[in-house]
Structures are given as C-alpha cells and as structure tokens.
C-alpha cells in the first residue's frame, strides 16, 4: 500500500513539445484516483511517468515515500492494465498471469497457487490453458486484471482499460474493477477519457486539459462546482449549458434584461458565462425565461429537450412523466444551481 506524490513533475519531449506542465498532487493510500481529459491532455503521459515507462523531465515522483524517478518499472512494485491488454499472444492465460512472478524468481509452486487464486477471483479458472486469441474481449480484460492482481503490487495503474469493450461489458467491468479495488484496498490511478467512468469509479477525479490540471475533487464537487467552463462542459452528458450573460447593477441578466440572481456587492459589471446543468432548469409556464423547444429526444427513462434560450442553444433534462411537444415554453432557473464563469478565462467566479 502506498501514497503517490508528484512534486512539480514536468514532461517535455525531445522534440520540445511540453506534454505536462509542472504538476503537483498527492494520492492517498488506498485511494482510487481517475485522471480524465480529452485525448492529448497529458493524462497517459502522467500515468506512464508514474509507471516508469516515460522519463520525468523535471520534478520528483515518490511512491510510498521514496523518490522513484530513476527506478526501473519492474522495481517500482506496480502493476499496469493496458488499453489493448498487452497480453503475450503466444502464452497461455496461466503463463501470462504468472510471467511477472516467474521473472521475480518466485518458486513455481507459489506461482501456481497465486495464479489459481487470481483466476478464481476473476472467474478465469476454466480458461487457464487457453491462449489469448481464444478468449472474448471481456475475458482478455480479466486476464489483464489477473496479471496485475497476482503480483500484490503497491499500486495499480489503469490505462483506459475498458475502451476496447462494448457498452454493456464496459458497465459490468466498471463495477467489477471498482469492487476488486475496494476489496484489495490497493492505491489505484486510472486514466480514461470517458467521464461516466470517471464519475462512477473515482474517489477523486483529476481533470486535465492541455497538460494542466483543471480541477481536483470528488465526483460530486467536480460535477456541481466545476472550476472552469472546460470542466463544466467535459463532465456530464449532456454537458452543462454554457450561455452568454451579463452582470449589471449587481444582477445576472440574460436576454437583455431578464434578471436571474443577485451577485455579491462589489462585483464588476460586464460579460460572463452562465452555466446551467440540463437537469437544473425547470419547465414552468410562469417561469421568467422563454425557451423554444425544437427537438424532443426520447431516452426512455427521461427526455432531453433541445432548443434555444436567449438566442443560444440550450438543453433541458426532464423526467419521462413530462410529456411535451416542440414549441414555445418557459423555464425557471434556481439561483443556487447556477455556475458563473469569467467570460475570458473560463474560470469560475
């Protein structure tokens, strides 16, 4: 079990490209942390630096209190699950799972016992003598997990482990991985671009963009109090509505006058961006804000109403009981649910 600590860790590639700006954060013992962000945001680079597969340009990385910058991946006591699983195609499941132990000179009997135990935990017992090519996607995923689990590492690293699975299997494996991690209590770092995975699995989420941390927080904090328009639009499906608004006379106004909420005294007047989660906008015939519905998207458990508010695209999430047709209606926006961002920097106000 171990803490992971990054102190001003930076990555610059030999061609001069800065993949990660100096970044610091700490992962607590037994914590499940998800690094999330769009492709090219530096999340994989961060993970690979923790694994030791990528050199650290500057800064210090410590695992369990020891600086490991110059420690070989094999000696960091970590296990990693790869996006394409990276199973050895010519080895049986048994050999795949046991290979790391064999290289560590563990006695054969002990390897076999550990492999059996891991296989049992992952329902792989009957597949131990098959080759990876004879397994389904979900089973391969499990073998990759088995390879990680069997070594009893200090730290699990996951590099988009579910993105090669179909949607149904993905949901199932998400729960299994989370349950396994809970049971074993191993510190885990999980990289994904899928915000649903991040929300459902993480103890804490780190949102990255262009090599910088945008926000660190629990899923709830990230969702309800996004630190920037980037986080607001990246987390949540459908994303948070972001519309232009103004602060005038201590009030947030849209549509050239409709007053939504008061702001603390002393805020400057000017342009801002207003964030509204689709489920926080309430349909209300006597509401203050006009909303023009153009498309009703039926999703079974709920409906999404796409349309325009104040001349800008806007989406409202309603329960399946609300039966409504395209056309003109009105909304009420509860001030406590609104997020305000600086129009220029996108940072929360």
């Amino acid at each position: 079990m171990a803490q992971v600590k990054l102190d001003a860790v930076r990555k610059v590639y030999p061609n001069g490209y800065q993949a990660v700006v100096p970044t610091s954060f700490q992962i607590e013992d037994g914590e499940f942390v998800v690094l999330v962000g769009p492709s090219g945001c530096g999340k994989s680079t961060l993970l690979r630096m923790i694994a030791g597969l990528e050199d650290i340009t500057e800064g210090t990385l410590s695992i369990g209190g020891h600086a490991v910058n110059d420690v070989d991946p094999a000696d960091r006591d970590i296990a990693m699950v790869f996006q394409n699983y990276a199973l050895y195609p010519h080895m049986t499941v048994r050999k795949n799972i046991g290979y790391g132990l064999k290289n560590r000179k563990v006695p054969a009997a002990e390897i076999e016992a550990k492999v059996q135990e891991a296989a049992k935990m992952l329902n792989l017992t009957e597949y131990l003598d098959r080759k990876p090519s004879q397994l389904s996607g979900g089973q391969r995923q499990r073998v990759a997990m088995g390879r990680a689990v069997v070594r009893d590492p200090k730290l699990f690293l996951f590099d988009e482990p579910l993105s090669n699975l179909d949607a149904k299997l993905r949901n199932q494996m998400r729960i299994e991985i989370k349950a396994l991690q809970r049971r074993l209590g191993v510190t885990s770092v999980y990289v994904t671009h899928d915000q649903v995975e991040a929300m459902t699995m993480a103890d804490r989420i780190i949102v990255l963009n262009e090599g910088k941390i945008e926000q660190i927080g629990t899923p709830s904090e990230i969702y309800h109090n996004p630190a920037s328009t980037f986080v607001a639009s990246f987390m949540g499906a459908p994303p948070m509505n972001l519309i232009r608004a103004q602060i005038e006379d201590g009030q947030v106004k849209i549509n050239g006058g409709t007053e939504l909420m008061a702001v603390p005294a002393g805020w400057d007047s000017g342009e801002i961006t207003l964030g509204v989660r689709p489920e926080d906008a309430v349909l209300d015939h006597s509401g203050a804000v006009p909303f023009e519905i153009s498309i009703v998207e039926e999703l079974g458990a709920h409906r999404l109403l796409h349309g325009e508010m104040a001349g800008q695209p806007f989406t409202v999430h309603v329960s399946k009981e609300v039966d409504i047709q395209p056309g003109q209606t009105r909304l009420t926006l509860n001030p406590s649910t609104l997020s305000l961002f600086d129009a220029e920097s996108g940072k929360t106000l």
Partner: peptide
C-alpha cells in the same frame, strides 16, 4: 508489434535479453 507488449514485459520484470 504493439508497444504495450514491451511495456507490460518491463513491468513484469523482463530485461532486454529475457
């Protein structure tokens, strides 16, 4: 050959000869 294979092998403790 996928790069992850050599990465997985390195984490599994295999050196270049192995």
């Amino acid at each position: 050959i996928p790069e992850e294979l050599v990465e997985a092998a390195r984490i599994d403790g295999a050196g270049p000869v192995k």
